[in-house]
Design a protein around this nucleic acid. Structure first.
Lengths: 147, 147
DNA sequence: TGCATGTCAATGCATTTGCATCTATAACGG
DNA sequence: CCGTTATAGATGCAAATGCATTGACATGCA
């Protein structure tokens, strides 16, 4: 009488499903917290963080892209918005006429800091508080394997 | 000399970052495998699976929605596409004049089965093969805590 | 019954995304 | 030096998505 003939649920599938749910859940919490605080989205945070790493000389878009996992056009447009918001300036690049040098503004730094407080608190609620004791490092190690 | 004053990396953040990366990685593998096989996306699979669960009498959209984590309008449009593709029929609902009864077609069942083979193989590569021994249940349990 | 309120599902409209392509410049090979 | 190919980044257009609202019906309550 056919015991779930084709929709079989093996372990890998279960892990994938829970991984998805966990990811969605955490992401939703963070985004909701940011929105509730009237702050920009996670994507903006990530970009600002990378920009801030560059320091005052700034850096190039393709460097950010490598660390951010966004498609090239996605980053290009995100940078456009950040610039329009006044969080970033794109100056022509001296050593490479094709590229721009990306420099975060003071305003950009300020908003990133604000976001970090909210972000961190949300993360604590959605992750830290849910993992008792020393299960954190264990989960970290296991996730690392899926890399 | 300020040791990473504000971009502090606590454990929760590390877990979140790796969770994101793992999720993206697995998702990308599955989607790529489906696309390479000329099959529809994961979202279609999930919907078809839920529809198939209903059996021949079909079921309602809101029931699917609860299990699928899609917004209402997203599901509505996805169902529209599935119907246009011939994988589903929406018949007027006898017991509730507002709703439709969703019934998967034979063609829908066939394509779901095809997808499952590809999906499952991709999942094995992206998850099963990466987790040695009995770490699977452990990871499963830890992810469950983030629910 | 009759009206207010709630629910199911679809859709118009603005925004965002993905894909392909484009422009501009650099790097290379002869 | 020139022509070819590669790389940085932007953008036009079509498709997808989010949000708000609608239309149709159900439900609850006086």
């Amino acid at each position: 009488m056919a015991q779930t003939p084709d929709i079989s649920n093996d372990l890998a599938t279960d892990i994938w499903v829970r991984l998805s749910r966990a990811h969605m859940k955490v992401q939703a919490s963070i985004e909701a917290a940011l929105k509730a605080a009237g702050l920009p989205s996670l994507a903006w945070y990530d970009a600002l963080r990378e920009l801030e790493r560059f320091g005052p000389e700034g850096g190039r878009a393709f460097e950010v892209q490598a660390r951010l996992l966004l498609p090239q056009y996605g980053l290009s447009r995100l940078l456009g918005k950040l610039e329009k918001a006044g969080y970033l300036v794109r100056k022509n690049c001296a050593e490479d006429g094709r590229g721009k040098r990306l420099v975060i503004t003071d305003q950009g730094k300020r908003v990133r800091r604000k976001m970090w407080r909210v972000y961190r608190a949300a993360l604590k609620r959605a992750v830290g508080d849910k993992l008792p004791e020393n299960d954190g490092p264990l989960l970290l190690a296991l996730l690392e394997r899926l890399k």
